[in-house]
Design a binder for these strands. Structure first.
Length: 292
DNA sequence: GTGTTTGTTATCAA
DNA sequence: CTTGATAACAAACA
């Protein structure tokens, strides 16, 4: 699922692909998740130039000429796939049955394509979403600024300090550590994969209560979070589910995952067994031999 | 037909 | 105010 590294990978690729391009049109067959409305978005982004693309937490913020911002959230199963130039008309037939994981440029749009942005040079950006939880929003600068301030600390900014990280844990002393890491209003960008991976790297069980963590453990966790996210960005993200890069290819992070999706396998660090449990309704992976 | 998968928000309970 | 539990959203897969 798209978390910080996946969204950041897409942001970088998207910047290279569409910055300075002019939006020609917008299409959707799922207007429910387009705000304020599909027709408003269509009308208001036509002819606008992509000035910049930023990211806040797991949201892409596309700055358009004219002062508005286009926000995209991929939620669980969203894909953004970019097609540089026009293919023969026959390639645009709606093709049913293609598994979204297969991605690819040659069979788009497919049955999971719910939004298409087209550009004046003929390029297209496909937003596919198997579960249809993802959304598109057009907002003013004021609304975009509010969104930015509503989220917690970004792990790659100066704001992410050991002091602030410690304060967060102290503010919610009775929460399990994973629950704090997952809370986007406290720390932004971590989802299920990188929470579990961060806890493993810090040798801390995700079930630990925040107030019980020792100073050294908090520090280990603090240091390991940006490290893991950086590695995941270097590898262009984790394609565990439907996530693919902007060109439709898979991310390369899976071989570097230590616990996520490795239940019943041997721990890469201590040869213990990786367990999977439910924690606050989430699948949670850990090694109970070397995480404490 | 059932359980599983998960980001986010809403709602209700203690 | 904190926390936990549950549902909702939607759809595929085993």
């Amino acid at each position: 699922m798209p978390e910080l590294p996946e969204v950041e990978t897409l942001r970088r690729e998207l910047t290279k692909a569409v910055k300075a391009k002019t939006v020609k049109d917008f299409w959707t067959d799922w207007p429910k998740n387009v705000k304020p409305s599909a027709s408003t978005v269509k009308t208001k982004i036509k002819g606008k130039i992509i000035l910049d693309i930023r990211r806040r937490a797991k949201i892409l913020i596309i700055k358009l000429s004219g002062g508005n911002f286009l926000l995209i959230h991929l939620k669980l199963t969203g894909q953004l796939i970019y097609q540089p130039k026009k293919l023969p008309a026959t390639s645009y037939k709606l093709i049913a049955g293609g598994h979204p994981q297969k991605g690819g440029l040659d069979n788009l749009p497919n049955k999971f394509t719910h939004y298409i942005f087209s550009f004046s040079d003929g390029a297209k950006l496909f937003f596919n979403d198997l579960r249809k939880f993802g959304w598109v929003k057009l907002v003013s600068k004021l609304q975009a600024d509010k969104l930015v301030s509503d989220f917690g600390i970004e792990p790659f900014t100066r704001d992410f300090t050991l002091k602030k990280f410690t304060e967060i844990l102290q503010r919610y002393p009775n929460r399990k550590i994973k629950q704090i890491l997952l809370d986007q209003t406290l720390i932004s960008g971590l989802g299920n994969i990188y929470c579990d991976e961060s806890c493993f790297a810090a040798k801390i069980l995700p079930t630990r209560i925040a107030r019980m963590l020792k100073e050294q453990e908090i520090k280990r966790l603090f240091l390991v979070i940006p490290k893991i996210l950086k590695l995941a960005i270097d590898k262009k993200g984790t394609s565990a589910d439907t996530y693919v890069q902007l060109d439709g290819s898979q991310g390369g992070m899976i071989p570097y995952l230590k616990v996520y999706g490795r239940q019943k396998q041997k721990c890469k660090r201590c040869r213990g067994l990786i367990h999977k449990i439910k924690l606050n309704g989430r699948g949670t992976h850990f090694c109970n031999s070397c995480q404490h």
